[in-house]
Design a protein around this nucleic acid. Structure first.
Lengths: 342, 342
DNA sequence: GTCTTGTGCTAAATGGATTTAGCACTTTCT
DNA sequence: AGAAAGTGCTAAATCCATTTAGCACAAGAC
C-alpha cells in the first residue's frame, strides 16, 4: 500500500487526478460560496481528495493567509501543581473544539524569560497568546507589547488587558456561608499570607480571598477564634498553627484553611488530639488540589476552576472578545466529608 | 515608534534597506559557508536586520525546507498526576535548548483519539512525535503508522519502536537494598496490582517493579510478612491493608509501598497505632509524587524520573537516534525521613 | 592579448494553497 | 440577429525564504 517514497499529496495532485485546476479544487474543498462549479465536479473532486488522502499543507496555508490556527500558551511553571495541567486541559479542549492547535512554552519561573518565550511564539506566528500564571506571587510581569491578541490567566498587569481570574470575592463569602450552615458558632481562619494585602497586584487571587473572608466574617455573629497569618502555606504551617490554637485552649466549631496543603497539616494536628473533621468539628479549605480527596476524611474544598479558566481564555481569544477587563469564574464548593452536616 | 500598520519586516525589506539582494541577505543571515560575500556587506546586512527587527517567517521557512523545528507531544492525560507536567517540563527544556518548539495535544484518555491527535500533528508537519503515556494501564495503543520519527515515553507497543522507560528492574532491587541497609529483618510489601503480571504489556512499568521486588526479596534473608495485592492504589487501600496487617499481629521492621498514595494510607494506619515511620519502623515508597514531601514525617521514595524521560525523548528524536529498543532511565532514591538510619 | 581562475553578487525557480481577474461558452432578452 | 446576462472553469499573482545557476568584473598565468 505504501508508496516507495512517502511524498505528501498536494493540491496539484488532486487537481491532476480529477482533471480540474488547482483553483477549482481549492474552491471546492473550502466550500467557497461565491464559486460557480458544477455539482458533478464538486463531487468528483471531493472523492478524489479523500481517495488520495489529501491534507492541506499548513505551512503553505499560513504563508498565504497569515493565520496559523495555532494558539500560544506560556506558563510560568508547569511543574509543581495540578493547576497548570488543568489549565492546559481546558485550553486544549476549547482549542480542539475550534480546530486550533496549541504551542507551549515555559519561563521556568524566571520572569525575564517571558520575552524569549513570546519571541518564540511570534516567530511561529501564533494567532493569539495565553499567559498563564500559576505562581500568584509573580510580580513585575514586564509583558512585552506584541501586536498579538493576548489573554492573561490568573494574573493582572498594569497595562489594560483582558484577564481571566477565579472569583475570589465570592469564594470567601461562600466559605463563610457554608460554615454558618454547618451550625458553627466559632471559627478559626488559618493561613492568611503576611504580605498579601500589602501588595494586591502581586497576589491578586489571595488578597481577594482574604478580603472577602474577613469582610463577610465581620457581618456575621460568628466568633472568630484565631486568624493565623503564615509566611507559607505548607502542611507544616497548618500543623503548627493548629497545634498552637488548641494548646491555647480554643476549640473552634469550624476551621477555614487557606488551601489544601494547610488543611493537611490541620488534619494531622487534629488527629493528634483525637479530633475528627466532619464529626467533632468542620474543616473547609480552598483550591481542591488532588490531596483533598486523599485525606481521611476527604476534605471539602472550594475549587480553583483552572480548567474553565483555560477554556474561557481560548474562547475570548478566538471570538476576538478582547476588551480590557476581568472575567471572573465561579469557584465551586466541592463537598466531601470534612464539614458537619448540621 | 510603532508604525501605524504593524506589518512584519520581511527579507525583502532588509534587502532593500541594505541595498543587497534577497539572496545575499539570506546567505548572510544564515551564515552559509560557501557564499562569497564581502565582510563589509555581511556587517551591513546584519546591522540593518537587527535595526529593522527582522525575524524570518516560520511558515515560509517550513514551506521551503519541509522542516518546522516543531515537535509534537501527545499525552493520554495531562490532568491527574504530576507526571505529565514533569514530562512536559523535560520536553520543553530539551526542545528549547535546541531551538525547537512544542505542539501539544491530548487524547483525554480515549485511545481512539490518538489517531485524531496524530492527524493534527502531521497536518502541522511536526518534525517528530513524542507519545507520552501517564496511565500505565493503557492497552491497545493502536498507534497509526505515520512516516514520522516517533518516541514512546512510558509505554511499549507491539510494533518495534523507540521507547523511553523508567528503570523499574533496578528500582525494586534498590528498594530492597535500602531496606536491608536500614537494619530491617522483616518487611511487608503493600500494593501489588492484581493483574499486572498477567499482562505486562498493559502495565510495563508496574509489572517490572514487582518482578524485581519479588526476585530480589527471594535472594535475601528478609522475612516477608505480607505481600498485599490491591485492586487500586489509593490511600484507602494502603490504610486498610496496613490496618489488617497490624491486626493480624505482624510488626514489620519495614514497609515497602507500591506508590506514595498507598504510603499515605499506610502512614494514617500507622499513626492510629501510635507508630511513627523513621522512628519505630521504616517506610519506603515509589514515584515521589508531591505528597511525599507533605507527609509527616516526609516520605522516602524512589522517584519516577519523568522530566529526564521527556528530555531524553527529545534528544533521541533530534539526534535521529531511533533504533527500535528501550532506553531505561535510572530511578533515584529520594531520601527523606521515613527510613530508619541503622 | 587571450585564457583561466577567483570574487562578489543577483535573477529566478521553488515549495503549496488561495484568490482575483477574466476567458469561452451557453442561454435569455429585446 | 445582436446584446446582455449567466455558467463553468482556469491562469497567474501572491505569501516569504532558500538555493542554484550563472553574470560581470578583476587579477594572475603564459
Amino acid at each position: 500500500m505504501e508508496t516507495h517514497k512517502a511524498k505528501r499529496v498536494t493540491l496539484a495532485d488532486v487537481a491532476k487526478a480529477s482533471g480540474m485546476s488547482k483553483a477549482a479544487v481549492s474552491l471546492i474543498l473550502n466550500n467557497k460560496e461565491g464559486a460557480r462549479l458544477s455539482a458533478e465536479a464538486k463531487e468528483r473532486v471531493r472523492e478524489v481528495a479523500k481517495e488520495l488522502g489529501y491534507r492541506p499543507n499548513a505551512a503553505a496555508q499560513s504563508l498565504r493567509s497569515g493565520k496559523t490556527r495555532t494558539l500560544g500558551f506560556i506558563s510560568d511553571q508547569v511543574t509543581v501543581t495540578r493547576f497548570a495541567s488543568e489549565m492546559i486541559t481546558g485550553i486544549l479542549r476549547a482549542a480542539e473544539a475550534r480546530d486550533h492547535t496549541v504551542l507551549i512554552a515555559e519561563t521556568f519561573g524566571k520572569p525575564d524569560q517571558i520575552a524569549e518565550a513570546i519571541t518564540q511564539m511570534t516567530d511561529r506566528d501564533v494567532d493569539g497568546l495565553i499567559l498563564g500564571f500559576m505562581d500568584s506571587r509573580q510580580r513585575d510581569l514586564k509583558i512585552p507589547h506584541t501586536g498579538l491578541p493576548t489573554v492573561l490567566v490568573n494574573g493582572i498587569d498594569d497595562s489594560p488587558c483582558t484577564a481571566v481570574l477565579p472569583n475570589e470575592w465570592e469564594s470567601g463569602a461562600k466559605a463563610v456561608q457554608r460554615v454558618i450552615e454547618s451550625g458553627a458558632r466559632s471559627v478559626a481562619v488559618i493561613g492568611e499570607l503576611a504580605n498579601a494585602e500589602k501588595d494586591p497586584r502581586t497576589y491578586p487571587s489571595i488578597s481577594r480571598r482574604f478580603s472577602s473572608l474577613r469582610g463577610t466574617l465581620a457581618e456575621t455573629k460568628l466568633e472568630v477564634l484565631g486568624h493565623w497569618v503564615l509566611d507559607d502555606w505548607n502542611p507544616t504551617d497548618g500543623y503548627e498553627a493548629t497545634t498552637q490554637l488548641l494548646a491555647e485552649g480554643h476549640s473552634p466549631d469550624a476551621i477555614i484553611c487557606a488551601n489544601d496543603r494547610v488543611a493537611m497539616g490541620v488534619f494531622q494536628a487534629l488527629a493528634e488530639q483525637g479530633l475528627t473533621p466532619g464529626k467533632d468539628l468542620s474543616v473547609l479549605s480552598f483550591d481542591d488540589e488532588i490531596i483533598a480527596s486523599y485525606l481521611r476524611p476527604q476534605l471539602s474544598s472550594i475549587r480553583l476552576p483552572y480548567e474553565e479558566m483555560g477554556s474561557l481564555a481560548v474562547d475570548l481569544l478566538l471570538d476576538g472578545n478582547l476588551k480590557p477587563g476581568e472575567h471572573q469564574i465561579d469557584m465551586p464548593l466541592i463537598e466531601r466529608d470534612s464539614m458537619m452536616a448540621h
